[in-house]
């Protein structure tokens, strides 16, 4: 009983950490975008104010039961992937390290590949119920884009699985600690393919074709205001953090303490953000063609590298 209680508290600590860091990253990204536009930009805590304002809206209409499922699926996706991914390395030196390794098990990488596509599917159902044409177009674009970036992403993961004969994220972290080499250097092709897939995963320009504000009026979320939008915004932030942590765990050896975690995830997060600031937007078919070009080829190279060496 006590064990379960402690586990629950640890899970809540992980969630609070992910929420705070994710929302702060959102605000910092807005600030950086503002500075790149030669503006002052909003303060870094602007996202917290926005979230609180959305939460304190007094009216929020819905379009039927399925509409709730969109927000609920997103929430489930982000929380479950956060719980599966070990946030800090289990054998690290900090005293709080055991708090943040929650429910990982052998084979969690395969489960993560599945669960990370779960949110967009739920969003598709929720957006379909709202009856807004922009939502339907946005969902179609989002699923097409997912078909694009999933292929190099899965190829990169399969290359790692072939090399080290394991599907557990903790095992990958242990291997990197024992050999002393990060996997981004051990199999560089896999890392490059994963980073190129990451550009589509985080949906910044040029791959912001799902929410395209001027084109689709924010796409799948266009009928959601108030508390619905708060749920989507906060679970989006948590999910962003979870994905960054997964990348850090797999390719950069995980993090031993919270400072290293924030440094590594922030550096990684800057790749799609800074590339996005200077890029215009692709059309859907251009995006898919881009993902099935060089990223897939490099993913193939990664698998060959894993098989041959």
């Amino acid at each position: 009983m006590e064990y379960i209680l402690i586990k629950t508290l640890e899970a809540m600590a992980t969630f609070v950490l992910a929420f705070i860091v994710g929302m702060t990253y959102g605000g910092v990204v807005r600030k950086i975008t503002g500075r790149a536009h030669n503006r002052l930009g909003p303060p870094w805590y602007q996202n917290f104010i926005d979230a609180f304002k959305l939460l304190s809206k007094t009216r929020g209409i819905h379009h039927g039961a399925m509409h709730f499922l969109g927000a609920a699926f997103l929430m489930v996706t982000s929380v479950v992937s956060l719980m599966i991914i070990p946030v800090l390395a289990p054998g690290g030196d900090a005293w709080y390290n055991s708090w943040f390794t929650n429910m990982n098990f052998n084979g969690d990488l395969i489960f993560l590949i599945y669960i990370m596509t779960f949110g967009p599917l739920g969003m598709a159902m929720g957006a379909g119920q709202t009856g807004n044409p922009n939502s339907s177009i946005g969902v179609t674009r989002g699923l097409s884009q997912m078909v694009g970036f999933e292929i190099p992403w899965v190829m990169a993961l399969v290359a790692l699985m072939i090399t080290y004969k394991t599907t557990s994220v903790v095992d990958f972290m242990n291997i990197q600690r024992e050999t002393g080499t990060w996997l981004m250097f051990a199999n560089p092709f896999a890392f490059i393919a994963a980073v190129l897939a990451m550009l589509g995963m985080f949906r910044y320009s040029p791959f912001d074709i799902v929410g395209a504000p001027t084109e689709l009026a924010s796409g799948p979320v266009s009928e959601n205001g108030g508390k619905f939008l708060f749920t989507m915004m906060s679970s989006g932030s948590v999910f962003t953090f979870a994905k960054l942590v997964l990348y850090v765990d797999l390719f950069m050896g995980g993090a031993n303490n919270l400072v290293m975690l924030v440094v590594k995830t922030f550096l990684l997060y800057m790749i799609p953000v800074l590339y996005g600031i200077v890029s215009p937007r692709y059309r859907t078919e251009q995006a898919v063609r881009w993902f099935w070009g060089w990223p897939t080829f490099i993913g193939l190279l990664a698998i060959l590298y894993a098989v041959i060496f």
């Binding site: 807005r30 503002g34 536009h37 030669n38 503006r39 002052l40 930009g41 909003p42 303060p43 602007q46 104010i49 926005d50 304002k53 922009n134 504000p213 009026a217 924010s218 979320v221 266009s222 009928e223 959601n224 205001g225 108030g226 939008l229």
Partner: peptide, 21 residues
């Protein structure tokens, strides 16, 4: 945009009426 930058005061464009204040 950059000359007057209303975003620093917390103003931001909303895409649809449901999200707007």
């Amino acid at each position: 945009t950059s000359r007057y930058d209303a975003e620093r005061l917390g103003f931001r464009g909303a895409a649809t009426p449901r999200q707007a204040d």
